[in-house]
Design a protein around this nucleic acid. Structure first.
Lengths: 350, 350
DNA sequence: GTTAGCACTCGTCGGCAGAGAGTGCTAACA
DNA sequence: TGTTAGCACTCTCTGCCGACGAGTGCTAAC
């Protein structure tokens, strides 16, 4: 085990104590109940007595890696214990190549349907990680228009379709100040498209006040649309896999309610977004490490995907602190890579 | 009470017995626990003894409208009892004008954002009805193409955007057999659009085999897209308001799991769709009346919305059999009307 | 440093009695 | 004949008690 030693506690742990912690975390993750010395002794690769384990457990408790909920009845890992486990004991999380192939294959099948990508990614991630998944659609910091289209619905009503640089499509309704048929709209579009290509919401707005003959009502609606596509507030979170965690004992009562509350509002995104570092490294927040109070009893594994500086989305997993971090981290890492690759195809700076 | 008399039991019920049933249903809906004769006697508008109520309860039990889960401990309505209540005792469900105005106002605010309509409708409906809401996007039986657009992403990759008669938009990826720049694609689009306008998936496919010079790979993808937009299997259900029912005692244990399972798969739609009558009347399924076994313990209130024969969607509410049918029916009815009105604007046969 | 043994703690589970809510039935009453 | 008061009965719910067992810390021996 040749890891760096950022914490001094690590120095104090013997090899066997590390093994005890590793086994304890694994056992607790699957059983959900406090683990006793006898159970651990049985799972030990080399024969060792339960009394020995008890001594090690006492040492681990002393440095704050495990705790006992009740005087009798086994130990559970603390948040700090999980952290040590994830950083030093877990091994490198890499999805089995079988899983990788399966996921890639599934994605190939829906590749053409762009609309359902985000939903689909959420579903796959939830299933692979065995927890609740969270996915946001890819966003650019500043949405730039690539193309738009107007389709006549009624004399004074049109459908406005915006396409941005990163291939995001948005449909809006456009009320017209005067009657206009499809031919008129098409002609207008042909004139306008070259003039607004590559512009941001601000640019379009300045066009309105600037000396231009382009109709303001179209530009206004385009600006509104672009603004909505670039802003964080309007970012929707797609999630999947609720069934994976609502059945678990941790979320039996009111806590299950909290999860739903969390996923519904924008609080989750607001809390996590500032924490996301640039680059696509997977980030892990365990228990009290979490930025938001509401997440205090959760484990969160997140990563960004996309093309740095151009268009990015967030993708992650939410579960009880007692979750399989290995599964979650490996899943998130792989999915982020996969989505980034797909983004490459979609984004063109032309 | 001048209702029709389809059932003969109704004839047997005295006015007071009907009042007893009405009060019992109302009380049970809010409390969730069996209701006793004493409680009912206290709520009676005119002074009446609990013994009298007991006689009436016995009569109601005899005709199958109420039952006692245990020998002692109050009565609860049977599915049949609910049915009688909904059809004869509930009064006409009409949302308060305050609620109507509020909803209409909220909708006006997001009117322009077509993409989020369905999600938004689901949220509003869930909140108004206080249960889980279900909404499908509007679909036409046969999707007809109105317009399409190709946007060059890479030399051999394009974004294909389809717009149907009912203003549904779909984005797909299109692999090109040879290099093509935006100008080439635009020229191709200009030629093709007039030739495929108004066509169905089958029509487009027959174009492929027919003597045409239009590139088959574009037509193929368009056909695939149109097929997906018209078919029932690909219809996605949006839902909202899980938090409204998962907290309730009925769904505390494994039953809550069932709800999630139900909403995830396509089983729900498959079961309900055949039951939907034409026209936009609200339909109510209570308990064992439900088409699917999995819904045996639910109450379902549904309606179609849209333009008959052209483009329709489904919108409804799912809750425990013990739910406020008044709230749900009035909400569903109003939302269906509202969505139909909005559809009128979007759909043009031009 | 490891292990066996032992006394101790404390949560879980089954049984049991008492309280309370609700019922059906009967007899009296308007 | 319909309504009401009273009563004995049933059954659930709650709290209490004790047995059981899993797990612990400590000590002494290896």
């Amino acid at each position: 085990m040749d890891t760096l030693q950022p914490e001094r506690e690590e120095q104090r742990l013997t090899e066997r104590q590390r093994m005890v912690l590793r086994l304890l975390v694994r056992e607790y993750v699957v059983s959900g109940r406090p683990v006793g010395s006898k159970t651990l002794a049985e799972q030990f690769p080399v024969s060792v007595s339960s009394a020995t384990i008890r001594n090690d457990l006492a040492a681990l408790e002393h440095v704050g890696f495990v705790q006992q909920p009740h005087t009798s009845g086994g130990r559970i890992p603390t948040d700090q214990g999980y952290r040590y486990y994830v950083h030093h004991l877990m091994g490198s999380p890499e999805l089995s190549s079988g899983d990788q192939i399966m996921i890639r294959h599934q994605f190939r099948q829906v590749e053409a349907q762009l609309d359902s990508w985000v939903d689909f990614a959420a579903e796959v991630l939830a299933e692979t990680a065995g927890n609740v998944s969270i996915v946001t659609a890819p966003r650019s910091m500043v949405a730039r228009l690539r193309h738009f289209e107007m389709i006549s619905l009624q004399p004074r009503l049109a459908l406005l379709i915006l396409v941005t640089q990163e291939s995001a499509v948005r449909q809006m309704m456009l009320h017209l100040p005067e009657d206009a048929d499809q031919a008129t709209l098409s002609r207008l579009t042909d004139v306008m498209v070259p003039m607004v290509r590559g512009l941001r919401a601000e640019d379009v707005e300045s066009q309105i006040v600037g000396a231009t003959e382009l109709p303001a009502y179209v530009l206004e609606q385009i600006a509104i649309g672009l603004r909505g596509m670039g802003s964080v507030e309007h970012t929707q979170i797609r999630h999947s896999g609720l069934e994976n965690i609502l059945g678990q004992p941790e979320f039996a009562g009111a806590a299950g309610h909290n999860v739903l509350e969390l996923l519904r509002g924008s609080a989750l995104l607001g809390a996590l977004l500032p924490q996301m570092s640039v680059g696509h490294e997977v980030q892990v927040f365990i228990g009290d490490e979490n930025p938001a109070d509401a997440l205090r009893h959760f484990g969160v594994v997140m990563a960004t995907y996309g093309i740095d500086g151009e268009v990015t989305g967030i993708l992650g997993v939410l579960g009880p602190t007692r979750m399989s971090y290995w599964r979650s981290i490996s899943s998130v890492r792989y999915m982020a890579r996969l989505m980034s690759d797909l983004m490459e195809d979609l984004y063109s700076s032309s």
